[in-house]
């Protein structure tokens, strides 16, 4: 995928850089160009106005498009890549909601019958059903929700790939009194970003596998940064939750929970960290993984839960 290793963050579009042509003073023009705020846009797959599974209490949740992990068990693989406008989905759409215009796929939400044919047929793990937003537009979209939600969670895809956008969005959210959480795969080096952590109340971190080989087999990426982040975020009180998906035979779930417990034990005495143990479910998972992966039994989940509890996580949730 084009995303892997990209330093450019191709999904962050910067607009508003057009020079002011009416200004004849060259010096002034340069100054104004430099000072003029850049309008960041990000591709958003979905905005939920109420969610009870994306952090404590009732929250709005923004799901960005684009992820740098390629997990075998991903239950929304259509959020992994950006649309290449190959046009295949336009051909399979039964509702005529997709058209090719100037080489770009255009999605008309009002015509969409939500049959999901487009995302099932997409060979690129992308979706034509995304919208570009500015941070301000997202805040406007959730303004009516404000009395009923306590916070905003950004998820994905991988939200840290939209780092600049998230900083701007969280600043606006904080101004409205919302708490701010990131649901992250941990690939981003949080230890080097004070500015982000200043506006982010906590990270809900996926630790998909403790074993390096397993992590690579599942995600295509090393787990080194993920573990570093777990320790760093716990150290500065920003580790809201650890999440592990249990997939028997494919991943050593109990070992991961055990090792994570050992790694975080020193912090658990000081602070509350939730451990969410998630049962693998085949819904939304792409082939061939869908046919080969198995959901855990209640007993297998219970064993993971007991291990997590033994290390003193404030709350252990099994879903």
């Amino acid at each position: 995928m084009g995303l892997r290793g990209s330093k450019e963050r191709p999904y962050l579009r910067k607009e508003g850089t057009k020079p002011l042509t009416l200004n004849t003073d060259k010096g002034m023009q340069r100054t104004e160009m430099a000072e003029r705020p850049k309008v960041l846009r990000a591709a958003v797959n979905k905005i939920l106005h109420h969610s009870v599974v994306d952090g404590p209490g009732n929250r709005a949740a923004v799901f960005f498009q684009g992820c740098n992990f390629h997990c075998a068990y991903c239950h929304n693989p259509e959020t992994i890549a950006m649309c290449t406008s190959c046009g295949h989905c336009v051909e399979v759409c039964p509702a005529g909601a997709l058209t090719l215009q100037n080489g770009k796929v255009r999605w008309q939400q009002e015509l969409c019958c939500e049959c999901d044919r487009c995302i099932h047929e997409c060979a690129h793990l992308a979706s034509p059903r995304t919208k570009d937003y500015t941070a301000g537009e997202i805040m406007e979209e959730i303004r009516k929700d404000l009395p009923f939600i306590r916070g905003l969670t950004v998820s994905g895809g991988e939200c840290s790939m939209q780092r600049d956008f998230v900083v701007e969005l969280f600043r606006l959210a904080k101004a409205e009194g919302l708490s701010t959480l990131m649901d992250s795969n941990g690939s981003y080096d949080y230890s080097k970003d004070e500015e982000l952590l200043a506006v982010c109340d906590g990270v809900m971190l996926d630790i998909k596998a403790f074993d390096e080989e397993e992590h690579k087999k599942l995600t295509g990426q090393s787990r080194e940064m993920v573990l570093k982040n777990a320790v760093y975020l716990a150290g500065c009180g920003k580790l809201e939750e650890i999440r592990t998906v249990v997939v028997p035979e494919f991943l050593s779930g109990e070992e991961t929970v055990e090792k994570v417990g050992q790694m975080l034990e020193p912090y658990l005495k000081e602070q509350k960290i939730r451990y969410k143990i998630i049962a693998y479910r085949p819904f939304g998972v792409r082939v061939p993984y869908k046919e080969t992966l198995r959901s855990p039994s209640a007993e297998e989940l219970e064993r993971c839960k007991e291990i997590a509890k033994s290390y003193g996580f404030s709350e252990v949730v099994v879903i």
Binding site: H50, V52, V53, G57, N58, L146, P147, F148, I149, R150
Partner: peptide, 16 residues
């Protein structure tokens, strides 16, 4: 789903 996060229902009540 609400049983897993009763605090979310409290948020709704507070808002209302």
């Amino acid at each position: 789903t609400a049983k897993r996060n009763p605090a979310a229902v409290v948020d709704l009540i507070k808002g209302a």
